[in-house]
Amino acid sequence: MPVRVAENSAPSQVSGTNSGNTSPPACTLLSVGQAFSGTQNVSSLQKEEAWRVNVRIQGCDLEHGYLCGTMEALNVPMADTPIVVTFWEGEIVDTKNYTFYTGKWEASSEDDKRHWTKFPSFSPLLNQVEVDGGKSLDLSNYPYIFMRWKEQYFVNVGTDCGLTIAGFYYVCFSCSDGSINGFYYDPNSSPFQKLELISTNEGRSGFSFSSYELQ
């Protein structure tokens, strides 16, 4: 079962003048080929439901704040196939390429704050983010990496599969253990759908991914 690791909110440096080195810390757990496994909670007022979710990173460019990958949702009730695969692209909040304010995808600055503040590790950053969007923060030594993941298209099913990829994920990645916590945002879906993933050691854990050709 996926375990949510308590987040340590003590940063090494979170404020002051930006030194110019704003790239997030190099992390072997955030690299091409790395796999994660866990759940997405899709609870609503009517029912509570959690889907098994697998994620693999297909590309990562820390210098430009970019990463991409595939996401597998397993045994989704309304889908005709046991696995629904999507391709997503991510924005790394590094205050150089991307800030904490989304500025698109129907997300307002208030939506951003409501979602980021759900991560305990964001708390020390909030005051500065409210001042300038966090542009003056130096996150290069921060033990967490904040990201947005936006699903771009379905890989193995059509758009009529009964699922939507209109929204995006607010994501917090722990550099210490590779755990991922996220919240899905879509004005037309149930709010705060929670994503919880842990890094997997393929081979030793018996966990494996299928192969997909990405167009």
Rank of each mutant, 00 (worst) to 15 (best):
E202F: 04
E196V: 12
L126A: 07
F173W: 00
L163W: 04
I180S: 06
V171Y: 05
W116K: 01
P124C: 01
V171K: 06
V157H: 02
D138C: 07
S140C: 01
Y185M: 06
E110R: 10
I198Q: 15
S121L: 02
F154A: 02
S179I: 08
E196A: 03
P187R: 06
V157L: 00
Q128L: 01
D160L: 06
T159R: 09
C161G: 07
Y153W: 15
I165G: 11
T200N: 09
K113N: 14
T102Q: 11
T95S: 09
E130A: 04
K104H: 14
P120V: 04
N97P: 02
K96F: 15
W116C: 02
G134P: 13
F146L: 04
G103C: 03
V155D: 15
V131Y: 05
L126C: 00
K194R: 15
S174P: 05
S108A: 01
S179N: 14
Y185E: 05
N156Y: 10
G178D: 13
E196G: 03
N141Y: 11
G103Y: 13
P191V: 02
S190C: 14
G203L: 03
K150V: 14
P124Q: 02
G203V: 00
G133N: 05
E106I: 00
R148T: 11
P191L: 01
P143Y: 05
D177H: 11
W105D: 11
K96R: 14
N156C: 06
F192T: 06
T99V: 06
P187Y: 07
F119I: 03
L139I: 13
S136A: 08
L126T: 04
V131T: 09
I198F: 13
K194Q: 15
K113C: 11
A107T: 08
L195N: 07
K104Q: 14
T102E: 09
Q193D: 12
T164H: 11
D186R: 09
R204Q: 15
T200I: 13
Y101S: 07
S176Q: 12
Y101G: 03
K113T: 12
T95P: 01
A166W: 12
D132R: 01
E110T: 09
P187M: 00
P124G: 06
C172H: 03
I165E: 12
S174M: 04
D132T: 00
Q152M: 08
N181F: 08
D112P: 09
P191S: 01
Y101P: 02
D111G: 06
D111C: 11
L137F: 02
S199Y: 15
I198E: 15
R204I: 05
P187A: 02
Q152S: 10
F122S: 01
T99S: 15
N156R: 12
T117D: 10
D177T: 05
V171S: 04
G167F: 03
D138F: 00
C161Q: 00
I145V: 14
E151V: 03
D177C: 11
R204G: 15
N141H: 13
N201H: 10
N188C: 08
T164C: 06
P124L: 07
D112F: 03
F122R: 02
S109V: 08
L139N: 05
G162I: 03
F122I: 00
Q193W: 14
C172V: 13
K194F: 14
D186N: 14
L125F: 08
F173L: 00
L195K: 05
L126P: 00
M147Y: 02
N97W: 07
I198W: 11
Q193M: 13
R204M: 10
V155S: 12
K150R: 14
